[in-house]
Design a binder for these strands. Structure first.
Lengths: 204, 204
DNA sequence: TTTCGTTATTGACTCAGATTCAATAACGAA
DNA sequence: TTCGTTATTGAATCTGAGTCAATAACGAAA
């Protein structure tokens, strides 16, 4: 090979590796692509890849983390001024917008972890926790009963599952789906609230 | 080693390997346990393991399949006589009973779906499809609009996510949760139905 | 009981792919 | 132009999946 080394700044190289790596892992699952092929496609030597990331898995995890953070950045509502019902609607809108604009990333993130890996799972799980907190915040309740927790997780599952189906097989336009989900989530939370009251009420 | 070979009937050995293997994969994720260690803990040689299963992954998949089939067997409603609303309730009851009685298996099954492995994902996905069909059957509609499909998948996500939270961190007793979920799912489907009507209606 | 055929079972071997490391060379500073 | 730093390389090593010829447990036949 005509050894034409290209020396880049550490951060630039690192960013590029993550950017290109994302595309690669998007096409092929973790254990379907070797470090040899990975480095070839990245146009660098295997050794260099190890210079930047301590292991194959760590490289992969770094990519998942990056996608994850980007997702959060794009879906978290900044203003806490808006009142709860509208905030939920805004949340749903951002969520669906992300799904619409980054379909493949969203699906990768949803499947998360290669090889049922515990760490990848943990990353995606902490992501869900943030979404949970967002939801919880729109309720204004400062103490969550078990029923309320369950309804929030239920809403999230509802949202995720619907979004996956929507991303995979299509459906109504975003605004339409958003309205539908808004009603569904509101209703689910409402039911959770009622049950929550019953829980705290002393038994007859 | 005092070579005390134990010769078993093929089917007996195979069943035992799957039974014990389930426990092992329950404790450790796929790539955290090698075929060497696996065979050691199974008290057999590595070669024998390969005699029964063509590869490590195939061994793992066989276990996932077994859990999966057992899950379906225990949660599918046999009688189609019961009318829809009661059938949904019965479905939810069976689902939650399984979660309650086989918590670790349920969680493994849930995670396998999130695993990067395409085949494991496919198994769990076909499982979900069966649950989808169950749900769809309780509706009695013979044609599903996109909105209706989305609501059913939404209900399933709601159910799964709630069940995972319940299995992980506890909550109300089964009957209580079942009633709550029943209301939630009914409501979600109801909303889906309304939207479904709007879809088929010509625009004003 | 003894012999014999079948095949469940073994352990040492191979091989692919992850990880390591000493040597090299691109770039900036002096 | 020289020199020091360190990004970059390729070959060597190590780990763990998968192979296979040899072994021995069991049942059947004598």
């Amino acid at each position: 090979m005509a050894s034409k080394r290209k020396r880049l700044l550490v951060d630039d190289r690192r960013d590029e590796l993550i950017r290109l790596g994302t595309k690669l892992f998007l096409k092929l699952p973790y254990d379907q692509i070797s470090m040899d092929e990975l480095s070839q496609r990245l146009k660098i030597s295997k050794g260099l890849l190890y210079h930047y990331f301590p292991s194959k898995k760590e490289f992969y995890l770094e990519i998942i983390r990056t996608i994850s953070e980007d997702f959060l950045k794009k879906t978290e509502v900044v203003s806490e001024e808006i009142d709860p019902p509208e905030r939920l609607k805004k949340n749903l809108d951002l969520y669906l917008s992300y799904v619409e604009q980054h379909r493949p990333l969203f699906l990768v993130l949803h499947r998360a972890g290669a090889s049922g890996d515990a760490q990848a799972h943990a990353i995606v799980e902490s992501n869900r926790q943030r979404v949970f907190d967002q939801f919880a915040a729109t309720l204004g309740e400062d103490f969550l009963t078990p029923s309320l927790r369950l309804s929030i997780w239920g809403s999230i599952g509802l949202l995720e599952s619907t979004a996956v189906e929507w991303a995979s097989n299509g459906g109504p336009p975003k605004e339409h789906l958003r309205e539908m989900l808004w009603k569904m989530c509101s209703s689910v939370i409402e039911i959770g609230m009622v049950n929550s009251l019953e829980e705290t009420k002393p038994k007859p």
